[in-house]
Computed example of a mutant assay.
Amino acid sequence: MIERLNIRPARFPLALPPPTPRKLSHTRTVVYQGFDREDGLWDIEAALTDVKTYDFRVSTERPFPAQDPIHGLKIRVTLNDHMVIQDVATSMDDIPHPECAGAPHGMHKLIGCTMGPGWRKVINEHVGGTQGCTHLREMLFNMATAAYQTLPSGQWQRLELAGMPQPTVTKPPFHLGQCHSWAYDSPTVQRAYPMFYKPKAADVTGN
């Protein structure tokens, strides 16, 4: 059983302060999902929707009534256990310009690439600038985080269901050293991955 820790830093508030009087103008919703496929691969899906609370019109284009999606975009990336892309599918259900329909034409170039360190560079090399779509690139970049949330835990679950032992961790997971809580000298790493914990120099010397 995993113990839930109730740790709240006293110096920093965890809630937003009350806002000044205002009204909602625009909502962007982005949803990421990870799927464990029956064939042993993994699907990571992203869906992005933009809506406004008022009738809106892009110059020279059709009007968008309030609450009608201006953007309704979806991406499905299929990965193997090593986070190598096996397939990419894109849906442009709602777009502000008819030319937007051609934006995904280069997405297949990502097949064979790996979601991992340097992922943003990989995206820009294959579908950057006018080769792709700003919103699709934003979705792709954050799909790597969703993939990391899906694959390692899903792989462990597969082993557990099969009655097989969990593999020994021999190298630092990718997320170590990437944020405040997972700094190598943090108590989080000391608890979760003591073999990779690196105390600060002051802690070692006792100063």
Rank of each mutant, 00 (worst) to 15 (best):
V51M: 10
D203Q: 15
N207F: 11
T145N: 07
L41Y: 10
P173R: 00
E160W: 05
V127C: 03
P173Y: 01
Q67S: 14
G112A: 01
P13M: 06
E3P: 04
K121Q: 14
N80H: 01
P167C: 01
M1F: 14
L136I: 03
A103W: 10
K109T: 10
R158D: 03
V204N: 07
Q157R: 12
F12L: 14
H26T: 15
V77H: 05
K52Y: 14
A162V: 02
L140H: 06
P19R: 03
G112R: 05
W182C: 04
V127S: 02
E125T: 04
M115L: 08
A202E: 12
H71T: 02
D50K: 02
P152C: 04
M83L: 12
V58D: 10
T49D: 09
G112S: 03
P18G: 05
L48G: 12
H126Q: 10
P9F: 06
T90C: 11
R120Q: 15
F12I: 15
H26G: 09
R28E: 03
G118R: 05
D87V: 12
A147L: 02
Q86T: 07
D93Y: 08
G129Q: 00
P173S: 00
P172H: 04
V31F: 12
C100Q: 01
A66L: 06
N124E: 13
Q157V: 07
R22C: 01
M83P: 07
E38Y: 13
W182P: 02
L24K: 08
K109G: 10
Q190S: 07
G132S: 04
T188Y: 13
K74I: 11
H180L: 14
P21D: 03
S91M: 11
G154E: 06
E160L: 09
G163V: 03
T188G: 09
G132Y: 05
M1A: 15
Q157S: 09
R76M: 10
